[in-house]
Amino acid sequence: MNNEALKRLGTWVAVAVALGLMVWGLALLGSKPRAVTAGGALQDPVTASDHAEGNTLATNILVEYSDFQCPACALYYSLVKQITAAYGGRLMVVYRYFPLTTIHPNSAISARAAEAASRQGKFWEMHNLLFERQKDWSPSPDPTSLFADYAVEIGLNKDQFIADLNSAEVAARVQTNLESGERANVDATPAFYLNGKKLTNLQSYGDLEQNIKDALQ
């Protein structure tokens, strides 16, 4: 190999190494643990009117502020389900509405659909369907008929469901949750409060589970 070829090879090796180092730096930058959301504390204690599952007499309480149209909430939905299955005997899991109406046009109506289902005793059934089929109804300009189909599917009275969906009481109930979330400093969804304290650094399922394990000890 002559000098010229060596020099060229050297240049390209240097370029490749420099690019590699930059990508490595980016990966390090992204993996630095940092708080995902601002801190805060639950301001409105859980009452009998909240939607709860797991052990509703448990002293350990996980409150989730969530938006049915938020993709991250749909991902966390399955995580929370696993948490409830694993620790539900000693943990109460509460769902509160926090529709981000500015970025999710169907977030308010989906919250009202869950609340309307709850009027017929099927909150969790509707909650599950909304998350599992988020991709179906999320882009719809008006998901009312889809939600009515879901209502029929889980055995609700359709007319009653539609009437509740459009009622002022149901809308007020969603609004009450939203305002309690704002008081608790919810700045993104989902937001979790374990025994009143906001969990600020959830990067994975493991993080959520670890927090709960620590509290249950």
Binding site: C70, L100, A188, Q203, S204
Partner: peptide, 24 residues
Amino acid sequence: AAYLAIGHYRGALPPCSIVHGCSQ
């Protein structure tokens, strides 16, 4: 683009925030 691709493969669950629509 590499920064976004790394984020994708790391599989972090970015929360939905009113301020930044990135997760969306």
